[in-house]
């Protein structure tokens, strides 16, 4: 049986959370949680210890950069794909420096999301 990766989906938009879940449904993933704000995201992260995270940046409570820093302290080998509307190099670079493996700018098409996710996971 194929190994399933535990994924946590974090975005303050429920529409985007649903779109990510739907578009990644053909990957070997088990969705262990979804969060709409940074504080809940960190709680879920600590409780579920996911292998993979999709992470928004502009969120209530805690922003995604702070969440990313905290996640890296808890589980350094987690694969994090930042999915954000913030289309500037400095933020992308900062996220990668902290430990994100991928940075995808919204709006995304299904194809772009799947391709970026495949690259991050090393799936052909």
């Amino acid at each position: 049986m194929q190994e399933k990766f535990k994924i946590l989906i974090i975005d303050d938009s429920v529409t985007i959370r649903q779109a990510i879940e739907k578009n990644l449904s053909n990957f070997p993933l088990e969705v262990v949680g979804m969060a709409g704000d940074g504080k809940t995201a960190l709680e879920l992260f600590r409780n579920t210890q996911p292998d993979v995270v999709t992470l928004d940046i502009t969120m209530p409570e805690l922003d995604g950069i702070t969440v990313l820093e905290e996640m890296m302290k808890i589980k350094k080998d987690v694969k994090v794909m930042v999915i954000t509307a913030l289309k500037d190099k400095a933020t992308g670079l900062r996220a990668i420096q902290i430990g994100a493996k991928s940075y995808l700018v919204k709006p995304f098409t299904s194809e772009k999301l799947k391709a970026a996710f495949s690259r991050m996971m090393g799936i052909n």
Binding site: S13, T58, T84, A85, L86, K87, D88, T91, V105, K106, P107
Partner: peptide, 8 residues
Amino acid sequence: NTISGNVR
């Protein structure tokens, strides 16, 4: 959010 974030 997307339109505003992209202008960064």
